[in-house]
């Protein structure tokens, strides 16, 4: 359960978001919509703990009853997906995934888990490939796998579908939603496009 309580975001004394509270249940995808510049992405950067110094915020964020908004990013256990896949270009596809995998998975189990994840994503045998040799859709799927292999307790999606063309978009969307449902973690999706919102998903309009 992800719980944002009484969040207000200011940019140079001007309120972007005022007194926003919401809860997201495990396995649910909450969509945040609104015109550009309204503070949708800023909301996500606050939740992940990377708010730029141009902004100030008041409010609290709880993840599974644990208060996280005062923790550094790396201790929040919240994953994020951006518009760009941001795969690390100096690592192979497998290297990117191994980077995300927790250290308690050791030895051959690491490679096995990476291979299984790739296989489920329809990318069997891609571990040794360089990210630059993949298509946009394939890269997007790897970036999802990377975020999820780190075993996050929640996932934030910052318009991750907007770069893909219509055909790929539909496919990728259902892939992401299926993963979230499977892992039973709360997710917050920021988007411009109503079509991105899962069927009977809740929407917050900013």
């Amino acid at each position: 359960m992800l719980h944002v309580q009484k969040l207000s975001l200011y940019q140079a004394q001007q309120a972007l978001i005022q007194n926003l509270s919401f809860q997201v249940a495990a396995g649910e995808v909450l969509s945040v919509m609104g015109a550009s510049g309204v503070g949708k992405s800023t909301l996500l950067t606050w939740m992940i703990g990377a708010l730029s110094s141009a902004f100030t915020a008041t409010g609290q964020c709880f993840l599974n009853q644990r208060r996280v908004d005062e923790l550094p990013t790396e201790q929040r256990q919240i994953g994020i997906l951006f518009q760009d896949d941001l795969l690390f270009p100096h690592l192979t596809v497998g290297g990117n995934l191994a980077f995300a995998l927790p250290a308690h998975i050791k030895g051959s189990a690491r490679q096995q888990q990476i291979d299984t994840a790739l296989e489920q994503a329809g990318l069997a045998g891609f571990a040794k490939r360089d990210p630059s040799s993949l298509s946009g859709g394939q890269r997007a799927r790897v970036s999802v796998l990377r975020a999820l292999l780190a075993e996050p307790q929640a996932l934030l999606l910052d318009e991750p579908f907007s770069r893909l063309d219509t055909a790929l978009r539909q496919q990728f969307r259902s892939f992401v939603f299926a993963q979230i449902a499977h892992l039973q973690i709360p997710a917050v999706l920021v988007t411009h496009d109503l079509a991105d919102v899962p069927s009977d998903g809740r929407i917050i309009q900013l």
């Binding site: 790396e74 994020i80 941001l86 980077f99």
Partner: peptide, 27 residues
Amino acid sequence: WLVKQSLIAKSLGYSAWQAGWQILFPQ
């Protein structure tokens, strides 16, 4: 993109220090 990559690494549980040496430094 470097700033965002560092953020990704942190969201995966790495400290800024580790993200620096393992992700930014090689690049």
